[in-house]
Design a binder for these strands. Sequence first.
DNA 1: TCGAAAATGTTGAATGTTCAAGAATTGGGA
DNA 2: TCCCAATTCTTGAACATTCAACATTTTCGA
Lengths: 169, 169
Amino acid sequence: MHIDRAATAGQSFNRDPQAKFTVAKPPHPNTPLTEHLAYLLAQANREINRQLETRLSTEGVPVEQWRILKVLSDGEGHSMGDLADAVLLNHPTLTKMIDRMVSDSLVYRRQDAHDRRKVLMFISDHGKALCKRLNSLAASQEAHILENYGDKATGELKRLLENLIDAAS
Amino acid sequence: MHIDRAATAGQSFNRDPQAKFTVAKPPHPNTPLTEHLAYLLAQANREINRQLETRLSTEGVPVEQWRILKVLSDGEGHSMGDLADAVLLNHPTLTKMIDRMVSDSLVYRRQDAHDRRKVLMFISDHGKALCKRLNSLAASQEAHILENYGDKATGELKRLLENLIDAAS
DNA sequence: TCGAAAATGTTGAATGTTCAAGAATTGGGA
DNA sequence: TCCCAATTCTTGAACATTCAACATTTTCGA
C-alpha cells in the first residue's frame, strides 16, 4: 500500500460571492449525505435486498432470477426486451443470466413466429416448482417486514414509491 | 444462439393440499412482482440513481465517488471501514475505488497514529473543489424531484425510508 | 508477559457487468 | 420493389465487484 508523505491541507475560506447579504438558504446547501433522497433509497434498497438475498440463498438463487421466474410464471412467452425492462436488468446482463438459467433447465428460448428478431422466453416445469418455493421465501420476508415496520407504514411507503416512479420516469 | 426444439410445457393443476376449504388468503399468495416492497425500492432506486448518475457524468464522476468526497469533506480523517459503511460499499470495492481516486489526486491516505491497523482517508483541495461542483449538480437534481413530486410527498417519503432503515437493520 | 483470537485493510483469482460493435430481421419511404 | 434505417438480441473485450486468503496490528485472557 502506498501512503502519501505530505499533501495540501489548507482550509480555504472562500465565501460564495453570490451570497452577499442573504444569510438563510444558501444557493447550494451542503446537505448531509444522509438527507439526500437518492442516498436513503440506496440504503433502504441495499438493506431490504440483502435480507431477501439471504432468504433466497436457501435455494441458491439470486434475486434477479427469482424476478425472472416470477414474470415468466404467467406461462406466456416474454421477449428478452420486455423481460429486461420488467426485471430491471440491462440487455446483455439479462442474456447472460438467461444462459445460466437455460443451463439449469429453469427456462427455455423460442423464436417468435411473428417477428423473428425476437426471442420469447418460457418457464419450464422445473422452473415453476422452484418459483413456488421462492415465492414462499419472499412472502415470509415481506411478512417479517410488516411485523417490524407496521402495516400502515408499509402500505403508505409502497404508495409513495409508486408515485415517485411514475413521476420520475 | 441455441434455441430448444421441444420442452415440457404441461400445465400442472395441483391445488395446494393445505387449502382444503378455505378460499380467501392462500398461504403463499402469488403477489405480482410490482407489489413487492423490495421490487418497488429497487425500481425507484434505479431510476433516481440513474438520473443522479447522468448529472454527475458532467464531471465524469460515479455516484459513489461523490458520496466518498462528501463524507470526507468535513476535513476529518475517516477510516476505510467507517467510510465503507457510510458510502454503502464493500471493503475491497472501496479499496480499489480509493486507489483510483488517489491516482486522480482527489483524496489521500494516512496511517492512523493511534491504531496502526487503520488507514485514515482525507480529501485534497482538488477533491474539495470537485465536491463543491458535484454538490451543485446533486442539489439541482433534488430540486427537480421536488418540483415533479411535491414537497410534502418527498418529506414524507424520506421519513418513511429512514424509519424502514432503522427497523430493518 | 505471552499467545491466541479479533480487527483492519489489501490482494489476486473468479465472477459478473457494461460498452461498443455485430448479425439478423423488419418496416417504410423513394 | 428496393434499399436504408430502426429494432431486437447476442457477443467479446474492457472494466468492476466479490470471495477467500493473507499480512499487520491490537486486544485480552491465562
